[in-house]
Design a protein around this nucleic acid. Structure first.
Lengths: 221, 221
DNA sequence: CACTGTGAATACCTTCACAGCA
DNA sequence: TGCTGTGAAGGTATTCACAGTG
């Protein structure tokens, strides 16, 4: 079964979310010169159980060798293909506040093959400024970016008030994948995929666990 | 049943992760002067189904009124209490690179009641620098921060190579909650809770969905 | 009477345990 | 023999649908 076929049949969302972790672990192994790896070793490097790793990989196809393990390069390619990383996914960052500027300067995008092709802001006073070596453009340029440069992913780093508007502009221009850093619920058509990164939500979840621990200790110190 | 009792019995992790969203929606409603809200309205504001909202809230206790809805203030308090937000959770950010500086300048922490009490770096050349109005301190100060200032949450914003070391220093000093921005799997003792925020993982998941969409359109345009 | 709270049904995810193969 | 790939079992999360109630 090809990766594309597996994709059409549907890899469970939970598996998809772990594939990047496997890919990262494989990249580290390849850098160390490791050629072959068992599910046990790879799972431990990625922080999951070996059974889960094997089940996840089985959704992509069977790329392992019984009694031996997985070829590091081969498996890397297959996972990259399943994730769609063989093509490029031009990214635009919308909102040049603190967070937007930090994201613009962040090297992690390029390292994993995502090209940031535009920095955008709706405020005309910010447009034209140079951030991380790139001139900030107007959100009005979005349709052209999609049309001419194949813009595929929009990162929303605006304040909460401007997030829905930024999102609408992205969607109207034809962007179908959005990474949202603003602490709001975005409404989008069904075909658009939104993922959310929210720092204060994460801290609140940590607070919950911190409290739970404190309560447990008070009961049984 | 009190919130503390519910906590001990265990609120499902998936529910906990949604509570911050409910709290945010309730805060917005309160700011609008809304006094009472139905599960339908609140769920829609938080981007979930009403059945899921009611099930989630049922894990905390029954704070609604049948035939009417929920009192906005009351429910806010109960959720805040369940999340442990009635006490404060001092935060330290470790790693003053691009991301660390952006996080230091980010106002979202303070707005949701998390006080950033220290900015840390292990590099002596960075220590002493002033970032976002605060003097950067050495990670060697960690034990004192926990002891004297009740430091409870550590945010790791170091490069990947330094993340495990930063984590170990936090844990050794007594921090039990860690928010990790570095793209590595951290190993910690059982009692420490780690949550991960990884931008390139999120982009890779978006790439997967973008590709899936493209394949679907090629098959049935 | 409208809305909550919840058992029952369903869907999804993870773990187990072993058959099957190099 | 040693490891993968996978059915079956066990858990967890979500949705349904309605009894219960202010």
């Amino acid at each position: 079964m090809s990766a594309a076929a597996a994709t059409r049949r549907g890899v469970p969302e939970a598996s998809v979310a772990r594939l990047p972790g496997y890919l990262r672990a494989l990249t580290a192994l390849a850098a160390d010169g490791t050629l072959s790896v068992s599910s046990e070793e790879l799972a431990s490097a990625a922080g999951v159980s070996s059974a889960m790793l094997r089940k996840d990989l089985s959704h992509l196809g069977s790329y392992g060798v019984r009694g031996v393990g997985y070829d590091v390069d081969r498996l890397s390619s297959e996972i990259a293909a399943a994730l769609g990383l063989t093509q490029d996914w031009p990214v635009a960052i919308v909102g040049m506040g603190n967070l937007g500027r930090a994201l613009a300067a962040y090297r992690g995008f390029a390292e994993r093959g995502f090209r940031v092709i535009a920095l955008l802001d709706r405020d005309e006073r910010v447009v034209g400024e140079v951030v991380a070596g790139t001139r900030v453009r107007s959100t009005a340029d979005l349709p052209a970016l999609v049309e001419d440069d194949g813009l595929a992913i929009g990162v929303i780093a605006t304040p909460p008030e401007g997030a829905q508007e930024a999102c609408d502009e992205l969607v109207d221009a034809g962007v179908r994948s959005v990474l949202n850093f603003a602490p709001v619920v975005l409404s989008v058509p069904d075909e658009v995929v939104v993922r959310k990164v929210d720092l204060s939500t994460e801290l609140q979840i940590l607070a919950f666990h911190g409290q739970r621990l404190a309560v447990a200790e008070a009961v049984a110190p």
